[in-house]
Amino acid sequence: MHLNIPRPLGSLVNILLRSKEYILAIASLIMAFVFFFVVILRYWFQADLFAYEEWVLMIAFWVYFLGGAMGSYENTHVKADFLLSLIDSVRTKWIVVNCTIFLEIIIGMVLSYWGWLMLWEEISAYPDWQRTTGLELPFVIPKLGIFLGFVLMTFYTSLHLWSGLRDGPTEEWESDEAPPHI
């Protein structure tokens, strides 16, 4: 996986990526161990981790959406792209793929905007904002994750477009963005 992005931005993207990897790794471990401890507590200590689902679900949303952003960076979102398998010329592929990426960016921008509407609805209700009923955690936490997820997905998709335009219809570009299936 390569992205042809000029240096200052490229390093920024890398730093962002590394920190996101650490967040994802740690959050994933927390998700798994919570359920492990819930079972241990129940059987060995007859104890109850009250309303743990409230915070563990919030962590989960961050994993879902930061993970989704990683998917955009790595270009692994599920695609049907069988139109591409009908095209032989790299140049035509290059045009088609960059057009669809462009459309994705537009869609991503609208989704990010809707994400902002959702987030703003939460924030503007402060101090009467929505909270969970058990631990009173604000719902702004998972929703911030959703919003950031869509923003990052759009951002990474834009990087793919930019990188693709810089690369041009080369073989390296093809192996990254439009690998042959058949």
């Binding site: 990897e21 994802l24 790794a25 959050a27 994933s28 471990l29 994993v63 879902y64 959406f65 930061l66 993970g67 989704g68 952003a69 990683m70 998917g71 790595e74 692994t76 979102h77 599920v78 959703i146 997820g149 997905m153």
Partner: peptide
């Protein structure tokens, strides 16, 4: 760590689609 990041990415891809 790689495995955790990779599974989180797969998770993200599945769950965002789900969403």
């Amino acid at each position: 760590k790689e495995a955790l990041v990779q599974s989180a990415t797969t998770t993200g891809v599945v769950m965002v689609m789900f969403f």
